[in-house]
Design a protein around this nucleic acid. Structure first.
Ligand code: FES
Ligand code: FES
Lengths: 141, 141
DNA sequence: ACATACCTGACTAAAATGGTCAAGTTTAGA
DNA sequence: TCTAAACTTGACCATTTTAGTCAGGTATGT
């Protein structure tokens, strides 16, 4: 079970953004430099964050991104969902009665994987961007 | 974050094994047929389970595998560790002071990923094979 | 005008995944 | 003793996913 870089970067970038967007929009270039994430990759990520209304963009010189919601209302769940970083403990469809690889029934450990998925998602539900900012916020002069 | 088939199969196979190994060893062929897992793949998996002393093997006709411990003492942690299904929320080394990709320092979200890793591992620590057998054990006649 | 910064889509090298295949060795039972 | 069942080992491989890069755009403040 690995967390992918895409998911990790999305959260890192948003935390960075939240720390610096007091007044002005924050450019991806700045985030890229500060966090050491490829600019091109960041652009892909922010395109998705924007589609999911987590950030807003301001084009042109002095443009950049700003949060579109209160940091308290941006849960890790929302972020991960936006960038398609989903938790998958099984391969079979949830609503189908069929098991993995088109088997007729669900497997004997099926409940376990459901429990695991819930356990992990609970963590993401209960963490907001705000939680990640505590004692951490920098003020732009 | 995906759970791989290898990990899922390992647990499925062990639950199957635990249910049927009352008297005789259970052959991988039987597990393969009952659970619909490739025999060749199962062999790879059980080779690792054996190295980690979770199962014992009995060769020859009527041979197979049996548990090497009490189901209560086989945690998911042990199983996953045996088949290299590890939880990895980061790419950087735990003991090193360096960050991901050889960066000089840890990233701003580092604590979060540590927490997440612990959260998931706790689930695996607290589940044993026994827990998965409740109300489920079949008796060979 | 022009630099900055967002926007979009195609492309790709490398790694991981989920196996298969081949060639054994061991041992119970006929 | 022969044979088939079952474990053992190691190499191999197709496909998918990951983690980006690259090459173009378009919008806008100064
Ligand atoms: S995990 Fe898909 S059938 Fe149980
Ligand atoms: S996750 Fe590796 S530096 Fe934070």
């Amino acid at each position: 079970m690995k967390l992918t870089s895409k998911g990790r970067y999305a959260v890192m970038a948003l935390v960075d953004l939240a720390r610096f967007d007091n007044i002005n929009p924050v450019s991806l270039r700045d985030i890229s430099l500060r966090q050491g994430i490829s600019l091109d990759y960041l652009e892909q990520i922010f395109s998705k964050l924007k589609k999911n209304e987590i950030v807003k963009s301001i084009r042109g010189t002095q443009g950049g991104y700003v949060l579109n919601k209160n940091p308290n209302d941006i849960k890790l769940t929302n972020i991960f969902h936006a960038v398609d970083e989903k938790v998958k403990t099984v391969q079979c469809k949830k609503d189908s009665k069929k098991g993995c690889n088109g088997k007729a029934t669900k497997c004997i450990t099926h409940n376990l994987w459901d429990e695991l998925e819930i356990h992990i998602n609970t963590f993401f539900e209960n963490k907001s961007l705000k939680d990640l900012l505590n004692n951490n916020k920098e003020t732009r002069v």
